Amino acid sequence: MTSDIWLPIPADEIDGLPSEAATGPRYRFWDGGPDFPADPADCVLYVVPYMKPAAVACRPLPEMRSVRVVQTLSAGIDHVQPGLGTLHSGVRLCNARGVHEASTAELTIALVLASLRDIPGFVRGQEREEWRAGFYPALADKSVLIVGYGSIGAAIEDRLAPFECARVTRVARSARTTARGPVHALPELPALLPDADVVVVSTPLTEDTRGLVDEGFLARMKDGALLVNVARGPVVDTAALLRETQSRRLTAALDVTDPEPLPPGHPLWHAPGVLISPHVGGSTSAFMPRAKRLIADQITRFVAGRTPRNVVHTTP
Rank of each mutant, 00 (worst) to 15 (best):
F163H: 14
H266P: 07
P278Q: 06
R293T: 14
I5S: 05
T2Y: 01
N95R: 10
R124K: 11
H79M: 11
V91A: 06
A55N: 02
R117H: 12
N95Y: 08
L250W: 09
P316E: 14
T177C: 02
G305T: 09
P162D: 08
V235S: 02
R117T: 02
A133K: 11
G150L: 10
R28P: 00
S115Y: 06
H88G: 15
T206Y: 06
T2E: 12
V171L: 07
P10F: 13
R249V: 07
V198M: 02
E101H: 08
Q71A: 10
A41V: 09
G181L: 05
H184E: 09
V147E: 13
R210A: 14
I14A: 01
I109S: 01
P259K: 09
H270Y: 08
M51E: 14
R306P: 01
G181V: 10
H313K: 11
V228E: 00
A231M: 03
A154D: 09
V91R: 09
A296F: 11
L107C: 06
C58R: 04
E207R: 13
A161S: 13
G265N: 10
S202H: 04
A239C: 03
V70D: 07
P82W: 08
P82T: 02
G98A: 02
A138M: 11
G305M: 10
S19F: 06
L192H: 06
H270L: 03
R159E: 01
P190M: 01
V56D: 07
L111P: 02
